[in-house]
Simulated scan of single mutants.
Amino acid sequence: MHEISIAGAIIESVLDAARKNNAIRVKEVFLEIGELTALNPDQLKFIFETITAGTIAQGATYNIQVIKPVINCTKCSYNGPIEFFEKLHFFLPTIKCPRCGETDVEIVGGRECCVRKINIS
């Protein structure tokens, strides 16, 4: 469950930014999570609620936008989203170009894990 360590790092950065801005409360956190990170948004929200107890982020709302994978194909020059990828292993997906089926692709989106905005008071 890699969500725990990543959620901890996210909350650390949120609390650090809030302290630097003299916040008394974190109201909302806006996140972008790439589908290829294999992070579960519902699990992240649960962990956030648990690890923020007793902090200025307790009770905050977490808005998580899931980013779909986007690729560039080296064979046919396809540049765009993919809707399906075969999983060889839980953490090792095989990504194919939807146009030509090539697996030699460059991933240009879908691996994000970032805090986009924090609403504080």
Rank of each mutant, 00 (worst) to 15 (best):
T55E: 06
Y78Q: 01
R19G: 05
T55R: 10
V108H: 07
I10K: 04
C114W: 10
I120F: 10
I64N: 08
N22Y: 14
E28K: 15
F30K: 10
L36N: 11
R111H: 10
V115K: 09
I67M: 08
F85Y: 15
A60T: 04
N63M: 08
V70S: 05
C113A: 08
F84D: 10
I82E: 02
V26W: 00
D16P: 08
I47Y: 03
N119V: 15
S13L: 12
F48V: 04
L88M: 13
V26K: 01
K96A: 15
P98S: 03
K117P: 08
T94R: 15
I10V: 13
Q65L: 13
T61W: 00
G80R: 01
V66T: 15
I4H: 10
D16W: 06
I67R: 06
G59F: 04
N79F: 08
E112T: 06
I107S: 03
P81N: 08
E3T: 12
E112I: 06
T37L: 09
G109C: 07
C114H: 12
L36W: 07
E106H: 09
E83Q: 14
C76N: 00
L44D: 02
G80C: 06
G109F: 02
Q43H: 11
E28Q: 13
Q43S: 14
A23S: 15
E35Y: 06
I71A: 01
L92M: 10
C97G: 01
G101R: 06
E106K: 14
A60S: 14
C76G: 00
S121R: 12
I118F: 05
I51C: 08
K45H: 06
A7N: 00
G110Y: 02
G80M: 03
Q65M: 10
P98N: 02
A38T: 13
I107A: 04
R25H: 07
A17F: 13
E3R: 12
T74G: 07
I118S: 12
G80W: 03
V108G: 02
K96R: 15
N22I: 06
D42P: 01
I56M: 07
E32S: 12
C76V: 02
E83P: 08
V108L: 10
K117T: 09
N72F: 08
L88R: 15
S13H: 13
T74S: 11
V70K: 05
P69K: 01
N119W: 10
E35H: 07
A53W: 08
M1D: 12
F84E: 12
A23R: 09
G54S: 07
N40W: 06
R99P: 00
A23C: 14
F48P: 03
L44G: 02
R99C: 05
T37I: 08
I11E: 01
C100S: 03
G80V: 02
D42R: 05
C76Q: 00
G101E: 06
G101Y: 04
N119P: 05
K68Q: 11
E83S: 13
L36K: 10
I64D: 11
G59Y: 06
T94I: 13
I6L: 10
K96V: 05
